[in-house]
């Protein structure tokens, strides 16, 4: 479903992704772990279509389409979703109005009828329950003044509303208390099915107890250098990344 081949990306003239290859088939959840600065967020931004990145090589195919050819909003309408590591505060824009615009532009693209205020509110309320989010919070200005954990929960609320084909979660678990972690995981697990793919970026194997991945990949210096089953996450947590660096040094 998402096939990344030999992706090379420069940011401000600096090589960040240096030939990254990754294949996430439909129905699978893959995890990416890797040290700070290894390029995890860069990968997720490039996939979501943020500006400011120079793709100097490689290709990304999403559901058979050339992902990198599309504008950010087209990608979202095609079903790509990124839960941001640092969700953006947008004061003055109501969370609800924003979500209604987003949902209806995606529904329109899918050939579904746009929801009116009543239909939207019904769906909104039911999804609030799924992610256990407070109604008052959800009705405020988009992420404005939200705590770190509230912002993350709001990302999952958006994901639950928009029902993307493919979701990238960039450290959605960082800064969450246990209750929030469970709520977020429930939201994610509710979306798991054979037609959806997910990429979960995390530093903690704890999350992977809740969202059990099919594969775990290690991203180091802009490349996937090691892949394995969920036990790899445990090993990384115990041993850190130095042994992988050493393996790499040996291999090069």
């Amino acid at each position: 479903m998402l096939e990344i081949k030999n992706l090379k990306v420069k940011v401000g003239g600096k090589d960040i992704l240096r030939g990254l290859t990754l294949d996430v088939p439909a129905g699978e959840v893959h995890a990416i772990m890797g040290p700070n600065g290894s390029g995890k967020s860069t990968l997720s931004y490039v996939l979501a279509g943020r500006e400011g990145y120079d793709v100097t090589g490689g290709e990304v195919s999403f559901d058979g389409k050339d992902l990198l050819e599309m504008e950010a909003d087209e990608r979202a309408r095609e079903g790509m979703f990124l839960a941001f590591q640092y969700p953006v505060e947008v004061p003055g824009v109501s969370n609800k109005v924003f979500l209604k615009h987003a949902l209806n532009s995606i529904r329109k693209h899918r050939g579904q009828e746009e929801l009116d205020a009543v239909g939207f509110l019904k769906l909104f309320r039911s999804k609030l329950k799924t992610v256990k989010m407070d109604k008052k919070l959800a009705g405020r200005e988009l992420n404005s003044g939200f705590s770190g954990g509230e912002k993350k929960r709001n990302e999952i609320l958006q994901m639950a509303m928009l029902e993307p084909k493919f979701a990238i979660l960039d450290e959605t678990d960082s800064g969450l208390d246990i209750d929030a972690l469970k709520a977020v995981s429930d939201g994610v697990n509710a979306l798991r099915d054979e037609n959806r793919g997910m990429l979960v970026i995390t530093h903690y194997q704890r999350l992977l107890d809740y969202i059990v991945p099919d594969r775990v990949h290690v991203l180091l210096d802009g490349r996937i250098v090691k892949s394995g089953g969920k036990e790899l996450a445990l090993e990384l947590e115990e041993r850190g990344y130095d042994w992988i660096r050493a393996e790499q040094g040996g291999a090069n």
Binding site: A48, G49, R50, E51, E71, A72, D73, R75, A76, R77, F81, L82, F84, P87, V88, V90, P91, G92, V93, V97, F98, L99, H101, A102, L103, S105, I106, H109, Q158, L162
Partner: peptide, 21 residues
């Protein structure tokens, strides 16, 4: 970018931010 990453086209996102201002 945040608004667009949720499927809202560039021009609507632009207008929403002007309205917010």
């Amino acid at each position: 970018f945040y608004l667009r990453s949720r499927g809202i086209d560039a021009q609507t996102a632009h207008s929403m931010l002007v309205f917010a201002f």
